[in-house]
């Protein structure tokens, strides 16, 4: 068990290191010269040199790399070109909202997806099963901004049931603040879940169908256990574990979806920040956003792996 946990931890660190290294070399190899992007207009060569040494760009690349890693470990992601604020500060203000959105989408997808997948697998060929298969393929083809815009237009502007923009009404306090939070979260969350749920339920169904055909299920049935007990106790356990790990692998896609959803709803998370920074060509923010989202995804993935480990007797021993 400890060995498994250690190997997962090693994989997580390796992934973060690769993400960070790739980012560094991308910034150095691609044509964009950071000094040309800081200020628009003419700069004398002396000014450029001064800027380069300020950013450490006049040193050998390996030294720059070590310097960069050192800064990262201290949480220094550079300074935003446009807003002249530390990138880490910008990102940390936005990250909680993205975590809230993506985290709730993750939990909700599991909560709806598992019963849906099980029902489909148990009643193979039935209405639920057909529905899940149809929904699985369709929702896999949905483009998140399209879904988000549709929901925003129908439930936000036309019916006026949900607010548009922002994540919370700043004037509310106490319980009303939580209500406002949920109210603002509803539409972005729903668009994200709608797109995630289909493929997830479909995968769970496939796993479950396989598990239901195994010998130990037949044996449990022949021992006279109730149908309900066999399905929800014996089969589900072995179908959910791969499904949970799969959901962990899906986290990267989930975060990508959150970026698009936040953009449509002007939800103040990291994704919306990315959209704003793209328009201003604010590279340090884009780089920092990728690094922080990568770290988030890898850590969340590690958590799901460790959770599956605790739940799975085969790995636990």
């Amino acid at each position: 068990m400890l060995r498994y946990a250690a190997s997962r931890l090693f994989r997580a660190i390796l992934t973060i290191w690769i993400a960070v290294t790739v980012t560094f070399f991308l910034l150095r190899l691609l044509p964009a010269d950071p000094t040309l992007l800081v200020v628009e207009g003419d700069m004398t060569p002396e000014m450029q040199d001064a800027l380069r040494s300020q950013y450490g760009l006049d040193q050998p690349i390996l030294q720059q790399y070590v310097l960069y890693l050192g800064q990262l470990v201290q949480g220094n992601l550079g300074v935003s070109f446009r807003q002249l604020v530390p990138v880490s500060e910008l990102l940390l203000n936005r990250l909680p909202w993205t975590l809230l959105l993506a985290g709730s989408a993750f939990v909700l997808t599991l909560l709806i997806g598992i019963p849906l997948g099980v029902k489909a697998a148990v009643g193979r060929g039935g209405t639920v099963d057909r529905g899940v298969q149809f929904f699985g393929i369709t929702s896999n083809a949905l483009f998140i901004p399209s879904v988000a815009i549709l929901l925003l237009v129908v439930f936000g502007s036309n019916l006026g049931w949900f607010p548009i923009g922002q994540a919370i009404d700043p004037d509310t306090r106490g319980l009303a603040a939580y209500a406002s939070l949920l109210h603002h979260l509803a539409l972005p969350l729903f668009s994200l879940v709608l797109v995630q749920l289909g493929p997830y339920a479909l995968t769970l169904r496939t796993n479950m169908v396989e598990v239901l055909g195994e010998d130990y299920i037949t044996s449990a049935r022949s021992r006279g256990l109730t149908h309900r007990r066999v399905v929800w106790r014996h089969a589900l356990r072995n179908a959910v574990l791969p499904a949970l790990m799969l959901m962990g692998l899906q986290l990267g896609t989930l975060i990508g979806g959150a970026v698009l959803t936040e953009t449509v709803f002007a939800y103040p998370g990291v994704g919306r920040l990315i959209f704003e920074s793209v328009q201003q060509l604010d590279f340090p923010v884009l780089q920092g956003a990728f690094v922080i989202l990568a770290v988030t995804v890898v850590l969340a993935n590690l958590l799901t792996d460790l959770l599956s480990m605790v739940l799975n007797p085969r790995i636990r021993t």
Binding site: T253, V259, I274
Partner: peptide, 24 residues
Amino acid sequence: TTATDVMLSLPMLPLMILVTALAG
């Protein structure tokens, strides 16, 4: 296998945004 797993676990869209922005 390791390279594949690492790539699959990274958030691709933010990475694509970063690279596209840098490359023009």
